[in-house]
């Protein structure tokens, strides 16, 4: 493991992870609201926001799936040192990370059980751009309606139909993050 892998974590984990957790919580509670995350320098191709989300939400007890380009030696080593999450195949993952294309088909991921809808995956989706333009979002946490540059609508509509089961999504781009919980209704503009 080279020294670069050993850097890029939180310098002050208790404070930084609490601040990041608050921001991610806000992103999930207000679907479509774009928040900023800081404090990590993960290896390429991970965005800073994806790195901070991993440091904050995952640990040795949360099986993680790395998809596509994210599944490379520098990222695997970085995860091993800073997080310690077991790397698993898609179906066993509590968290998954990759571009929307790399995560396909998203039906592979756990959507929970009727008794335990919480036993589902959270997808951290790396985006080329993340803006408040695109499909319409409505539902819990949204006063009237909002918009987010989602990669598609069909998959999210299918996921919404599983409610209370289903996966949850975090979209990351650079230092920005937005949430799309399973409870949000997505409609093409």
């Amino acid at each position: 493991m080279n020294t670069h892998t050993l850097s890029g974590g939180f310098a002050d984990a208790p404070i930084q992870s609490a601040q990041a957790f608050r921001a991610i919580l806000d992103a999930m509670a207000r679907p479509g609201k774009i928040m900023a995350l800081h404090g990590a320098a993960p290896p390429a191709p991970l965005s800073m926001a994806a790195g901070v989300a991993l440091l904050t939400l995952t640990d040795a007890t949360t099986p993680l799936h790395l998809a596509g380009a994210a599944d490379c030696a520098p990222v695997r080593d970085w995860v091993a040192f800073h997080i310690g999450a077991r790397l698993v195949k898609a179906g066993d993952a509590a968290f998954a990370l990759g571009t929307w294309a790399a995560l396909q088909p998203v039906t592979r991921f756990a959507t929970g059980l009727p008794d335990y809808p919480d036993r589902s995956a959270t997808l951290i989706v790396e985006m080329d751009r993340l803006t408040n333009h695109g499909p319409t979002l409505t539902g819990p946490g949204i006063e009237t309606a909002t918009w987010l540059s989602l990669p598609e609508t069909a998959a999210f509509r299918a996921n919404r139909a599983l409610f209370p089961m289903g996966f949850d999504c975090l979209f990351t781009c650079g230092s920005r993050i937005a949430g799309l919980p399973r409870s949000t209704k997505v409609e093409a503009l």
């Binding site: 020294t3 050993l6 850097s7 974590g9 310098a11 984990a13 040192f81 800073h82």
Partner: peptide
């Protein structure tokens, strides 16, 4: 020395 990971 510097810390790559402070005592945790």
């Amino acid at each position: 020395h510097s810390f790559l990971r402070s005592p945790e």
